[in-house]
Nucleic acid binder design. Sequence first.
DNA 1: TACTAATTGGTAACATATCTCAAGATAAGT
DNA 2: ACTTATCTTGAGATATGTTACCAATTAGTA
Lengths: 139, 139
Amino acid sequence: MQEHNPMRITTQRQIILEELLKVTSHPTANEVYDMVRKRLPRIGLGTVYRNLELMSETGMILKLEVGGTQKRFDATVTPHYHVRCMECGRVDDIKIPIQDDINELAAEACHYQILGHHIEFTGLCGDCGKSPQQKTSIN
Amino acid sequence: MQEHNPMRITTQRQIILEELLKVTSHPTANEVYDMVRKRLPRIGLGTVYRNLELMSETGMILKLEVGGTQKRFDATVTPHYHVRCMECGRVDDIKIPIQDDINELAAEACHYQILGHHIEFTGLCGDCGKSPQQKTSIN
DNA sequence: TACTAATTGGTAACATATCTCAAGATAAGT
DNA sequence: ACTTATCTTGAGATATGTTACCAATTAGTA
């Protein structure tokens, strides 16, 4: 009889993880698909979604549900914050100390059992900030 | 000649705003659609999307792009943070002081022009926290 | 090597959000 | 109140992002 639910090491999974580790950006499933397809042209989009989801469930990678409609994925699993460009949607890491204390503040301010938090900064990235197009920026 | 671009006051817009003001949750466009449809059964989903988007552009309401794939809308426009239930997806306000200082920290830590930030706490809401189903909770 | 269950690729289905456009409604002037 | 110009609506079509389905393939084990 076989062991229950051991995640098999497939070429697809390996390459998806490898490609994700290569970049510091936070690609969407589609972007990962494009990256992986250069090495595995026949891979299916479903496979990419399936595995990104799986790997995020097991904690191998991080699924970011930040602003914007698409999910993004991150191979850096240690807690950290993000900044998102309002113009192009790009997401980068922000290395500032984790604000542990605010969890307690929050717990006192609501009826939730607080398990964690995430901070997302918004702004303009290096490229988009150069040409200062007047945009109504709320928050 | 007519004034340029004055947002007209239509029944649909009024009711959408009224319904949004009634709730403290942060409904998705679809949820707003359901709420509004009770009073305006013939309203189209497109109209709801269109107007929520419009109203958020003019600053009348707030468009939250928090975790989860759907956009959510909030009639409270003063800056505040949110908590999201990992179980049911519900989103509530958290009334803790705005952490203004971290914007400067962030600005120093990256090459973005920082314009703002949002903190989203994750946890279990009153209802979901009661029946402690063992869930793998990352972050 | 052969077996068994997990995994894949391709496609269809689904969910969410936006676009199109004729018909209807609003605001301003008469 | 009537007219007109323009904005807005509703309904469906379309686009985008994600998941489900299933026969064929593959990894891990004996």
